[in-house]
């Protein structure tokens, strides 16, 4: 075996290696993660630090200069500017309207579609279709459908004798409209997560409960719902955070109106930052949004930990 490969590598290997195997692995690993780390520092961590700084300054559009103003922007938001509380209220109304509607519909659809029957794929495909559709397209079409008297929705309602409101022109109805259309757009995602969770529950539990004479409702209430709790928690937080982020949907359907009736936090940040160039104020708003999202995440982690114990 004069031609063994190993003979010539061994000749090469006689030279003492520069790094130990452990060191080499660490160097390689950092090379592997380097694009992610650089991007993360540049486009996420850096900006996150910057937004804290920005929120403590005031930006002069003309001179392109910023001056340090301390917590002025926060004081502005929390006490001086009446818009802020209105916007925050809108954001919470939106979230508190959307989350329960979304989750209960998702759960009901999942319960109906987690067992095989004819048409299950058909219905799943339909309910999930809006998820893959662009939010912009979805908002445009619904805005079209929800126009005053000429809109298709009101025309349909007229057929059954209901005189529909001018959905997007009345503040309260506009909020209802954006919530409901957003739920239709996104419910498929939660439905799929619930279906996956339901299918992971061993059928024996249900069979055992049924043998003990439990009704369908009792089985759901006492067996299935408790077993779904971890999934429900995750879905709750994802959906809640998602509802605070909602921007394109509202931008296109109502533009925040009417009478700022659908002006929510994400939209307000955009408006203050990029329309009025109140960079400092918008950054303070961004920080407030960050804190809300962070609080939700922490709550989730605490609940999840308690769940495990």
């Amino acid at each position: 075996m004069a031609d063994t490969l190993t003979n010539h590598v061994s000749a090469r290997g006689l030279r003492a290696p520069r790094f130990s195997l452990r060191q080499r692995e660490a160097i390689e690993a950092w090379l592997f993660v380097s694009p992610t780390v650089v991007g993360f520092l540049l486009f996420f961590l850096g900006p996150l630090v910057a937004v804290v700084y920005f929120s403590l300054t005031e930006w002069n559009l003309l001179t392109q200069q910023s001056t340090f103003v301390g917590i002025d922007n926060y004081v502005d938001a929390l006490s001086r500017n009446p818009d802020f509380w209105h916007v925050l209220r809108n954001s919470f109304v939106f979230a508190l309207g959307l989350v329960p509607l979304n989750m209960s519909l998702a759960l009901m659809l999942a319960l109906a579609l987690s067992r095989p029957f004819r048409g299950v794929v058909f219905f799943r495909t339909i309910f999930f279709a809006p998820v893959v559709t662009s939010a912009v397209a979805w908002a445009i079409v619904w805005k079209f459908l929800l126009q005053g008297e000429a809109g298709a929705v009101n025309q349909l309602l007229a057929v059954v004798g209901i005189d529909g409101p001018n959905w997007l022109r009345e503040p309260d109805w506009a909020m209802v409209a954006v919530i409901v259309t957003r739920v239709i757009k996104m419910v498929g995602l939660n439905m799929i997560l619930y279906i996956a969770a339901l299918q992971a529950i061993p059928r024996d539990y249900e069979a055992a409960a049924r043998l003990e004479g439990a009704s369908n409702w009792q089985i759901f209430r006492m067996v299935i719902w408790p077993l779904l709790a971890p999934t429900t928690l995750v879905i709750f937080v994802i959906t809640m955070i998602g509802s605070f982020k909602v921007f394109d949907h509202i931008y296109l359907m109502t533009g925040g109106g009417p009478e700022n009736g659908t002006l929510v936090l994400a939209f307000y940040i955009y408006e203050q930052g990029f329309k009025f160039f109140n960079v400092g104020y918008a950054s303070a708003l961004a920080m407030i949004m960050f804190v809300i999202v962070l609080a939700l995440t922490v709550v989730q982690m605490i609940l999840r930990r308690r769940d495990m114990q």
Binding site: L5, T6, N7, V9, S10, F19, L21, R24
Partner: peptide
Amino acid sequence: SGLEDITEGELYIGDRLINDVQAAQRG
């Protein structure tokens, strides 16, 4: 084999110390 690194001590294949030689180059 070189799949696990050596904390202490010496390993020779033939006359060659291979503690820090990569697995594929140990023959």
